[in-house]
């Protein structure tokens, strides 16, 4: 099977090669075109391009659409006008909830809207978000509980860990941080600043070191000092690179070996992410047995609706949300508040 794939791929590339050779031959056949030197002045070379903006600025449109939704709040009745339906659809799509989940909501409210449009949408969304969100902070007897953090680049993993370290410390726990992101320049440095602030221990290694060994050392230190919890950082990675996901699998295995026990694997997601978040969640779930999501950057204009689709399709609960830069801006996820902000102006 694998061999078949390899052979096919090689073949295909050979044939691409043929196409390349042909292109080159053709290029050679063409008359040489004299190349004008680049003018050493700054010239505006853009041609006018069609704008995609609708008449009436986009901002106005956004404002009106949300206003309309507000008006719908008060409407009750048995059926939905097509205009109302369009507005619901628009609000949902704009929140990044996705086409499939939007359709699912619409199907439900088509059946009737005893609570009014807004109320009914709210009810349906909360139904999708109805699951257990408790975090586990103790391991089996004699094991050190580990929270492992995974995610793609730039979503705010390290910052999230720093804030959680502070929160755990505030609740009187002795925290050990494992700087397992040995890839990004200066990630360990960033985590060390948080460790200092939270009065936590940190285990770090040189850039490019094996992340597994960092976590192993952190577990050793945590056991020796009778720490209450280990928060382990990992390098950001693309969710569609199987080598990197294999590495993550290994890191997780190391973290789950005595004396450690992975009690939570948290996927950190950026609220501005669109439909790709769903495939990120799927891949990380398969590679690292994700137990929960931390949704960051909710303080911007993005609404993070994609987590509804993730909960609905993959059943991974959101456990924390990040709504700002301060430590206290990392909060426990509350479905009702989230849905309200999803639907709010």
């Amino acid at each position: 099977m694998t061999i078949a794939i390899i052979i096919i791929a090689v073949l295909v590339v050979v044939l691409v090669g043929v196409a390349v050779v042909r292109t080159r031959t053709r290029a050679r056949a063409q008359l040489p075109v004299p190349v004008a030197p680049l003018p050493e002045v700054l010239v505006e070379t853009e041609a006018p391009r069609p704008s995609l903006e609708e008449p009436g600025s986009l901002r106005q449109r956004l404002a009106t659409s949300r206003g309309v939704f507000d008006r719908l709040r008060s409407i009750t009745g048995d059926t939905l006008s097509s205009e109302q339906r369009d507005v619901v659809e628009e609000v949902l799509l704009r929140s990044d909830i996705g086409v499939a989940t939007t359709k699912a909501v619409l199907d439900q409210i088509d059946a009737g809207i005893p609570l009014g449009v807004a109320g009914e949408v709210r009810r349906v969304l909360l139904e999708f978000l109805d699951r257990d969100r408790d975090v586990r902070i103790v391991g089996d007897p004699g094991r050190v509980p580990v929270w492992l953090f995974v995610g793609v680049n730039g979503v705010g993993k390290t910052t999230t860990i720093g804030k959680l370290a502070q929160l755990h410390a505030d609740e009187g726990r002795h925290v050990v941080l494992a700087a397992g992101d040995t890839f990004r320049a200066a990630a360990a440095e960033q985590l060390a600043q948080w460790a200092e602030r939270a009065n936590a221990d940190i285990v770090r290694a040189a850039e490019g070191a094996d992340p597994g060994s960092v976590i192993h050392d952190a577990l050793g230190r945590a056991a020796a000092r009778r720490a209450d919890i280990v928060l382990a950082d990992t390098a950001g990675r693309r969710a569609n690179n199987s080598n990197l996901l294999d590495e993550l699998r290994k890191v997780r295995r190391v973290a789950d070996r005595e004396p450690g026990q992975v009690v939570e694997t948290l996927l950190v997601l950026d609220a501005t992410t669109g439909q790709n978040a769903l495939s990120q969640a799927r891949e990380f779930l398969a590679a690292a047995e994700v137990t929960g999501i931390v949704l960051t950057k909710l303080d911007g204009t993005a609404r993070g609706g994609i987590v509804v689709a993730i909960e609905r399709e993959l059943g991974i609960p959101v456990k924390y949300v990040g709504v700002g830069e301060r430590v206290e801006d990392l909060r426990v996820f509350e479905p009702e508040a989230f849905v309200d902000s999803l639907l709010a102006t």
Binding site: L58, V152, R238, G274, A277, T301, A302, I306
Partner: peptide, 29 residues
């Protein structure tokens, strides 16, 4: 990988800085 929010971002920065162009990242995702 940005979702619907891309327009807000682009608009806000364009208003503030009058952009000459865009650089798109993470196309390997």
């Amino acid at each position: 990988v940005t979702g619907q929010d891309a327009v807000h971002t682009a608009r806000a920065f364009h208003d503030a800085l009058s952009l000459s162009g865009l650089i798109v990242t993470k196309l390997d995702y």
